[in-house]
């Protein structure tokens, strides 16, 4: 699709959005590298979810612009650009009136993909997401929270997205399930070599997934880099405070 593949999966070019007098996100300049996992991190209200929503066109910048997969997100192009992305949110966003399988196949069928392709994808991705294929016949309400997120992951991966967006994908799960899903997710990202942008407020989770961390504070980028970069040379007192607040949690959960 793209003539000269840009090294970026997405770019923020001075993108900003004001919600009210007291909360503004941006202006942000940021490149999201292809094939890597970028984690947007920060306390609640820092603007990380807004940035993610800008990438999928659910939030529009008031000024500046956003480029995704080499395209700008104008209204006309939006559906086709969105079909090249996967989007996964905290509660999965599964449609309650459709079975897990119908949820998973909805978009592929809507765009007229071959049934053989669809069946093969469902089988392959269920295995990748470690989802019991029998569960696909069930309604979302008949599944556990973890199972629902696995279904939502399969749905997001169905059309082999070039960019996968995740908004606190594990936020609503209990710790045991969460750890298990973290491993499975990371394994899936590595297998697929897809570009990922993930939003989380949890430093341990961020460190677990991230190739690049982007720490946000009050709508601006406080610092970006690896966890080591942030720990060794915190760019501001806020970065220091944020790291120290999360340290005990990190020691407990992060295993090399």
């Amino acid at each position: 699709m793209v003539d000269a593949p840009s090294p970026f999966a997405a770019r923020f070019l001075g993108a900003a959005r004001t919600f009210d007098a007291r909360s503004t996100v941006g202006p942000i300049d940021l490149e999201v590298a292809r094939g890597k996992t970028t984690v947007l991190l920060g306390p609640s209200g820092c603007g990380k979810t807004t940035l993610l929503r800008m990438l999928i066109g659910l939030a529009k910048p008031d000024s500046g612009r956003v480029e995704v997969l080499g395209e700008s997100l104008d209204e006309e192009r939006l559906p086709s650009v969105r079909r090249r992305m996967g989007y996964l949110i905290q509660e999965g966003g599964l449609f309650p009136h459709l079975s897990a399988r119908q949820n998973v196949c909805l978009l592929a069928q809507h765009v007229g993909r071959d049934p053989a392709f669809i069946d093969a994808q469902v089988e392959r991705l269920s295995a990748l997401a470690r989802l019991d294929p029998q569960l696909l016949q069930k309604l979302p309400s008949e599944l556990s929270g973890g199972q629902r997120q696995r279904v939502a992951l399969v749905r997001a991966l169905m059309l082999e997205p070039e960019l996968l967006l995740l908004d606190e994908p594990l936020g609503a799960l209990d710790p045991m399930v969460r750890v298990e899903l973290q491993e499975d997710l990371r394994a899936a990202f590595r297998t697929l070599e897809t570009s990922v942008v993930m939003v989380t407020h949890d430093l341990a989770e961020a460190a677990f997934f991230a190739d690049t961390l982007v720490l946000l504070h009050e709508g601006k980028i406080a610092q970006r880099g690896s966890l080591d970069d942030l720990e060794r040379t915190p760019a501001s007192p806020f970065v220091e405070r944020f790291l120290s607040a999360h340290r005990p949690a990190r020691r407990r959960e992060v295993t090399p």
Binding site: I56, G57, L58, L78, R82, Y87, F95, H110, R155
Partner: peptide
């Protein structure tokens, strides 16, 4: 909103 936006984000017409 989460459901409406999920449908939108999927790229459904």
């Amino acid at each position: 909103a989460a459901l409406r936006e999920s449908a939108e984000a999927l790229g459904l017409s």
